[in-house]
Amino acid sequence: MIPDLVHSILAGMPMPVLIVDRTGRVAAMNAPARAMFGPAGPGRHYIAVLRQPALLDCVEEALRLGQVRRARYLTTDIAREATYEVLASPLGEGGADGVTVAFSDITEREQVGQIRRDFVANVSHELKTPLTALLGFIETLKGPARDDAAARDRFLDIMLREATRMSRLISDLLSLSRVEAEERMRPEAQIDLAATLRGTVQALGTLAQAADVALILEGAEQPILVQGDSDQLTQVMENLIENGIKYGGTGGEVRVVVTQSARELAFRGPGVRVDVIDKGEGFDPVHIPRLTERFYRVDNHRSREMGGTGLGLAIVKHIVNRHRGRFRIDSTPGEGSTFSVMLPRITV
C-alpha cells in the first residue's frame, strides 16, 4: 500500500511520476503520468504500461540492482514530438519498496541543441564553398596560370567576389547575433521613419538604376515618428528594398508604400505600415513560413549568384520583433511579392 502522504506528494509534482513496486506492478501514478500512459495503469505490470524497450530496461535494472538508472523516452502526441529524460530511483533500502520513475521534459533543450548543430553545419557549408574556390584559384595562379595574364585577371575577379561573399556572410552573422541579444530590449529613441525611408531609397537609387528598376516611394512626405533604433530600421528597409530590386526587379518596378492608421489592431493604437511591393516572378506561398529561417532560400543557386547570405530576412524578423512590430510576407507566382513591416506609431 502506498501511504496517503506519498500520493499527496505525487499529486503535487508537475512532471509525470509513477511508482513500481517490488512485484513489478504500477502502484501509483500522478495526473501527468496518467495523461501520458492512460488512466488504467495502476495495478498493471510496468511492461504493459511503459512498453518502450529502453525504458523497460531502465526500470528492470533499477529494480534488480537497487541502483539509480537513466534513460530517454520519446513520445509523439497530436501536438508535438517530445523527449523525456527518465530517472528510475530505488525506494527504500536497496529498492526494497520498488522504484519511482520520473519523467523530465527536455524537448526544448534538445531542440536548442539541434538548432545549434544545424546552424554550425550551415555556416560551415556556406563558408566552405567560397574557401574551396579561393584555394583552387590560388593553386592555379601559383602553377599553370602563373604567366597567363588573362586567366589571372579573370581568377582575381572571381576571388574578389567570393571573398566579398564571405565578408558579407560574417557581417550578417555578427549582425544577427547582436540583434538576437538585444531582442528583448525595446529601443527608447524617437525617430522619423519617413526620413529613414527617403534616405534608404536615395541610397539604393544607383542599384535600382543599374538593374533598370523604377524605385518609387509613396506616403513618406510628412514626418512619421516611431520608437526605434535608427540604424536597425535602416537595415530592415535596406534589406527589403534591396531584395525587391534583386529578386523582384524583373517586373521593372519596386514600390515602397507607407500607410498610417489611427488604430492598428495588432498594437491597439496608432500604427504605420511599410509595404515593399515588386512585380517580379513571385514564389509559391508554401515557402512563406520558412523564409525567415536562417539560410533558407527559395532558390539556392540564384540567391548565391545575387550575393545573398540567406540571413537577411532572419535579421529583419528579429529587428521587427525588437520594435514590437509585425512582419508579413505575401506572394503569388507570376504576380510578384509584398513584404510588409508594421510598427507602433507615436502621435503628437
Rank of each mutant, 00 (worst) to 15 (best):
L173N: 05
C58M: 10
V257A: 05
V123T: 10
K128Y: 09
M13S: 09
G282Q: 01
L131P: 00
G308D: 10
A121L: 10
T338E: 11
A48D: 13
T75A: 15
Q190T: 14
L156K: 00
V272T: 13
G249R: 06
V348N: 07
D4L: 13
K142T: 09
E61L: 13
S124G: 06
G325N: 08
I216M: 06
I191C: 09
E81Q: 15
G228R: 08
L160R: 12
A102H: 02
M36L: 15
P344V: 11
L127Q: 08
V213Q: 02
E264K: 12
P53S: 08
G244P: 07
L74F: 13
V6R: 05
Q202F: 08
E182K: 12
L313P: 03
R44V: 07
G282F: 01
Q235K: 09
L55Q: 10
R154H: 07
S167Y: 00
S175K: 10
A27M: 10
D21V: 06
A203D: 14
V274M: 04
V236Y: 03
E293N: 12
E182F: 09
K279H: 14
H125Q: 14
A88Q: 02
R324N: 12
E93I: 06
D105R: 10
R109V: 08
P187T: 12
A189S: 13
R186S: 11
I170Y: 03
V274F: 03
A214Q: 12
T132W: 00
R109W: 03
R165A: 08
A195R: 13
A48Q: 12
E180R: 15
A203G: 05
G269S: 11
E183D: 07
K279L: 12
P187V: 13
F155D: 13
R44P: 03
A40I: 04
L134V: 15
F327M: 10
T206R: 07
S331N: 06
R70I: 09
I115M: 12
G95Y: 03
L156N: 00
V86W: 04
T332Q: 12
